[in-house]
Design a protein around this nucleic acid. Structure first.
Lengths: 330, 330
DNA sequence: CAGTTCTATGCAAGCGCTTGCAACGCAATT
DNA sequence: AATTGCGTTGCAAGCGCTTGCATAGAACTG
C-alpha cells in the first residue's frame, strides 16, 4: 500500500531477465522465447504489475490513444458508430478520448489541440465539418486523421463514409418509384443534411418532378422538431404527400403529431427518416429510413489504423455505402 | 516539417528563461512574473509549441485524464450526464477516456485495468454496479473513484447520485395522490431499476395499496420494449390503470402501442417514465417522468475532483436528488 | 542598515518505459 | 573446423516534462 507501484524492473528482476525483455514481451510477444514468456507471465502476476502507458507513450512512438471528436452524444445520430468504434479500438488495445465539439463546432480547435498534446495515434472526426484553416493545420501534422460519415472530395487524410448526395438521390428514386409526387423536406442545418437534400432535389427534378419544398431546422435534430415540422406543413401552398426528414427522430415526432391530428400515416401522409435508429423499426408505423452501417465504419477505421501502423499504403476514400430500408411509413 | 516538434526547451530558449519556468507558467501561471509570462506567451506562439501531456503525466502526478466507464452510449439514459461531465471536465483542462463495459459489465475489469495503466486522475462509474471483488480492488488503489447516479450505502470512494428507492417511493406517492389504484411496473433488469421498483412497491403497499404487478425487461431498455410491454398487459389478471416504466423510452413505446390499439392515454391508461429525456416533454401526450439533473452531477464530480487535488476533505455521499415532473401522461 | 522574509527563477535528478545496437549461443552451411 | 545466420537477450541512451532544493535579489522589519 504505502510502497510504490511495481515497475517493469520489478517484473524483470522477479523473472530473472532484463526490463527490455519484459517490454518486448508486452509489446511484441513473439520476440521472446516461450520459456522466458512463461516466467515473465508469472512475474507479472506475482508482483501485480500494471504497466504505465504514459511512460510507454513518451518513450515509444505510440500512445494507444485515439481521439474521437463528435458534436455531441446526448442525442446524436452518430452514437452507434462511435460506440462501435470504441469497442473495436478497445479490442485492439487502444482507448478513445471522446471530445465534444458542440453543435457549432466551437470547441473544435481546442479539442484538436488536446488531441495533439496527448500525442494520440489518430484523430477521428465524426459529423464534423472543419474549415479550411483547420484542415490545413491537420494536414501539416503527421497525425492520422480519419473523417467518418462523410466522403469529401479531398479528405484531410483518410475518409470512411458514404456519399450523402447519393443517399439523397436514392431516396428520391425510391419515393418516385412508390408513386409519391409532392415531397417536402425537413433539413437539419448541417452540411451533410444539406448535401442529401441537394442530392434529393436534383434527382427528383431530373426525373421530372417539381422542385421539392423544404423547411430548415436546427441541429442537433430531435423529436420535438418533428412535431413542429408537422405543424409547419400548414404554411405550405400545397399539401405534400411525403415528408423526407433529415433524421429518424424528426420523422418519429412528425408521425406522432400527424396521428394526434387524426392523419393516417402513410395513407394520408408518408414519412421517411434517416439513420435507421433501432426505434425506426419499432415505431407504429415502422419508419422507412436509410441505414448506415456504423459497425462497418468502425471496422474500416481500425483497418486503416492498422495499415498505417504497418506502414502500408491505403486508399484515402473508403465508401461504406448506405441502404434505403423500406418500411411502413412510406 | 521534417524537423522535430518544438519542446519546452525551445520555448525556454526563445523566451530567455529556463524550461522550469515555462513549465511553471503552463501549470501555475501565477508563479511567474508578468513580464516573464509575456515573453513566454510570445515564445510559445513563435515556435508553435504544443505540450506533450504524456511526458507531463510521467513526470508529474497528474495525467489530466479521467476515465468514464458506462455500459453503452448508443441508447443510454446516462448520455446527458456523460455529456455534461465531458464538457465540465474539458473546461477544467482534463479529457475523458470513454470506456464501454457492455450491458452485463463484462468488460469492466479490462477497462479498469486500462484506466489504471493510463494513470488516470479518476475513474467515474456511471450506471455500473461492481462486484465486491472489483470494489475491493479499486479501494486498494489510490485512484479517485466516483460512482454516479447511484448512492450506495458504502461507496468505493465517493458517490454522487440519488436514492433510487426514494425516487420509486416518491412516484408511488405521486400516483396515489392522483387517484390511481392499480399500478403495473415495467422494470429493466438492472439493480438500480430494481431498487426503484422496490421503493415504489413498499411505499405503495405502506399506503394501503395492493402489491403492484410487474414485468421485467432486458437492458438496455428501448422503445420496442414499450410496445411489447403494452401487449403483455393482456396477460395480467386485472387491467392496470397506470404503467410505471423504468425509462422514458419504454414509456414512449408503450404509449405509441396503446394509441395504435385505440386506447387513450392517460384517460384509459396512464403511463410514467424515468429519466426525463428531452423527448418526454415533446411526446403526445407529454410524459410524466423523473428528472435527474445530469449537469448538476457533472458539477459535483468536478467539485470533488478539485477538492481531492487540493487535498481537502470531502463528503463521500453527495445526494443530488430527483424531481417528479408531472405532465399529461399520468 | 543589517537581518529577515518573499518572490521569481534556475539546476538537475528523476518519472517508467522503448528501442537501436551489440553480443551471445547454437544450428545450419560451406 | 570455420563461417554464417538467426533467434534471444542485455545495455544504455534517451523520450519531454515536473518539482524539490538552492539561489539571488527585492521588499520588508525593527
Amino acid at each position: 500500500m504505502g510502497t510504490r507501484a511495481p515497475r517493469l524492473d520489478d517484473v524483470a528482476a522477479h523473472a530473472g531477465v532484463s526490463a527490455a525483455t519484459v517490454s518486448r514481451f508486452l509489446n511484441n510477444p513473439d520476440m521472446v522465447a516461450e520459456a522466458t514468456a512463461v516466467r515473465i507471465r508469472a512475474a507479472i502476476q506475482a508482483v501485480n504489475y500494471v504497466p504505465n502507458l504514459n511512460a510507454g507513450a513518451l518513450a515509444g512512438s505510440r500512445s494507444r490513444l485515439i481521439a474521437a471528436l463528435v458534436p455531441d452524444i446526448a442525442a446524436s445520430i452518430f452514437n452507434d458508430t462511435v460506440e462501435a468504434m470504441i469497442e473495436e479500438l478497445a479490442s485492439d488495445g487502444s482507448s478513445v478520448v471522446l471530445a465534444l465539439t458542440g453543435p457549432d463546432n466551437h470547441r473544435l480547435h481546442a479539442e484538436i489541440n488536446m488531441a495533439l498534446a496527448r500525442r494520440v495515434d489518430a484523430i477521428i472526426l465524426t459529423g464534423i465539418v472543419s474549415d479550411a484553416e483547420t484542415r490545413a493545420r491537420l494536414r501539416a501534422n503527421p497525425v492520422t486523421v480519419i473523417e467518418t460519415w462523410g466522403l469529401p472530395e479531398d479528405p484531410i487524410d483518410v475518409a470512411v463514409g458514404f456519399s450523402h448526395s447519393a443517399a439523397g438521390a436514392e431516396m428520391a428514386r425510391f419515393l418516385r418509384g412508390r408513386g409519391y409526387r409532392r415531397p417536402h423536406m425537413v433539413v437539419p442545418r448541417s452540411s451533410r443534411s444539406e448535401r442529401r437534400a441537394k442530392g434529393f432535389a436534383e434527382r427528383w427534378m431530373h426525373d421530372g418532378g417539381a422542385e421539392p419544398t423544404r423547411l430548415d431546422v436546427n441541429v442537433p435534430s430531435h423529436f420535438g422538431q418533428g412535431r413542429l415540422s408537422y405543424r409547419a406543413l400548414d404554411d405550405l401552398p400545397e399539401r405534400p404527400d411525403v415528408v423526407v426528414c433529415g433524421s429518424d427522430w424528426i420523422a418519429q415526432g412528425l408521425i406522432v403529431e400527424a396521428q394526434a391530428a387524426g392523419i393516417r400515416v402513410p395513407d394520408q401522409l408518408a414519412v421517411t427518416g434517416f439513420g435507421n435508429l433501432r426505434m425506426a423499426g419499432d415505431m407504429r408505423p415502422t419508419i422507412t429510413s436509410v441505414d448506415i452501417d456504423g459497425a462497418r465504419i468502425a471496422r474500416e477505421v481500425l483497418r486503416v489504423l492498422r495499415a498505417r501502423a504497418a506502414g502500408e499504403k491505403i486508399e484515402t476514400r473508403i465508401d461504406v455505402g448506405f441502404r434505403v430500408i423500406a418500411r411502413e411509413s412510406a
